[in-house]
């Protein structure tokens, strides 16, 4: 296991390096941020001075090595716009996005897993067909449209829930989150549901397919022949088997939800990282874009590692082969 983790960490370092290279030069090719910051009336001297102050007068490879050198010391550059370290800026916004993504994912599991398992257990029942139809809607309706509809129904027409912002936060066990206040939860409800809709559908599909496939397996019949109650057959024998693919997908989904909650954050004016990256791209705030992408890639690496470890906990066959490798 230790060997496995060390090997994965080394691979991850390489991935991070290659990614930083691509992102840095990619962002360089987009355009010159000076054109956006400096007022059109500024003369050539002011322009050169601003360029020098931001370090943009040097050749691109020199800029890259300066960035790399600073990155090793934990400094991913300063935002041109906010004039503060990019990493601080992103970390400030991260809790908001994390709580949104985690809530959405939990919602997806809590709602999707039981519905999917039921739909797979009784595939011919009316309930199963309704669940399946619902999951098709969840897959195919665009997120922004659902978000707007939610606002229209629950904020505008019914007036039950606030439509924008994060609401009041509270600190509990050192974590500041809107999960701990009623106002915060009211603000979180709609964006989380909006973001969760796709995940619920996805987990329904996975759970249903896994359930249907596994219920036909010989081991289920054998477990029943042992005289086990059906709930033990379903919730222990089958459940542990269908969990394997679901954990993989949930892990990957968590990463992409955090990275790409952009649409939902924009609609509900949620002050998270997604909104920050969109704003930064519009202003060509190069250090923030680069730092953001580095953090996202790092996060994906960590999540994948956790998923792999979880996978080996769930599936004893994987555990054995890893021990050899």
């Amino acid at each position: 296991m230790t060997v496995f983790v060390i090997r994965r960490l080394m691979q991850s370092g390489l991935v991070l390096f290659v990614m930083s290279l691509i992102v840095f030069f990619g962002v360089y090719a987009i355009g010159d941020p000076i054109e956006i910051f400096i007022s059109p009336e500024a003369d050539q001297i002011e322009r050169e001075r601003a360029k020098a102050a931001l370090g943009l007068d040097r050749p691109v490879w020199a800029q890259y090595f300066a960035f790399l050198g600073a990155a090793f010391q934990g400094d991913l550059g300063r935002s041109f716009v906010f004039n503060m370290p990019a990493i601080t800026l992103i970390l400030q916004r991260m809790p908001a996005t994390l709580e949104l993504a985690v809530s959405a994912l939990l919602l997806g599991i809590v709602v999707g897993l039981p519905l999917g398992m039921y739909a797979g257990y009784r595939p011919n029942s009316a309930g199963a067909k309704a669940i399946l139809a619902g999951s098709i809607l969840g897959f195919s309706l665009p997120t922004f449209w659902v978000g707007l509809m939610l606002i229209m129904v629950f904020a505008v027409n019914l007036g039950w829930l606030p439509s924008t912002g994060r609401g009041q936060t509270a600190t509990y066990l050192g974590i500041t989150s809107s999960l701990f206040t009623v106002d915060g939860l009211r603000h979180l409800a709609m964006p989380a549901l909006n973001l969760a809709l796709f995940k619920i559908s996805l987990i329904i599909r996975l759970a249903r397919a896994g359930m249907r496939e596994n219920m036909l397996m010989d081991y289920v019949r054998f477990a029943r022949a042992k005289g086990l109650p059906m709930r033990r057959v379903v919730f222990v024998h089958v459940f542990k088997n269908i969990l394997i693919p679901i954990v993989t997908v949930i892990g990957l989904e968590l990463g992409s939800t955090i990275a790409f909650a952009v649409v939902t954050e924009s609609i509900f004016a949620w002050p998270g990282m997604g909104k920050l990256i969109i704003d930064s791209i519009q202003r060509l705030d190069r250090p923030v874009i680069v730092a953001y992408l580095c953090i996202i890639v790092f996060m994906f690496i960590v999540i994948n590692l956790v998923v792999d470890i979880l996978y080996s906990v769930l599936d004893p066959r994987v555990r054995l082969s890893e021990a050899k490798g």
């Binding site: 397996m217 081991y219 019949r221 022949a225 005289g227 086990l228 109650p229 599936d315 004893p316």
Partner: peptide, 25 residues
Amino acid sequence: LRHLRGRRIAMIFQDPMMTLNPVLR
């Protein structure tokens, strides 16, 4: 029936590779 199965009537299946649950000890 459930109380009968496994206690008073037991069954052995054809394919031993498939009858045991792969993820349980």
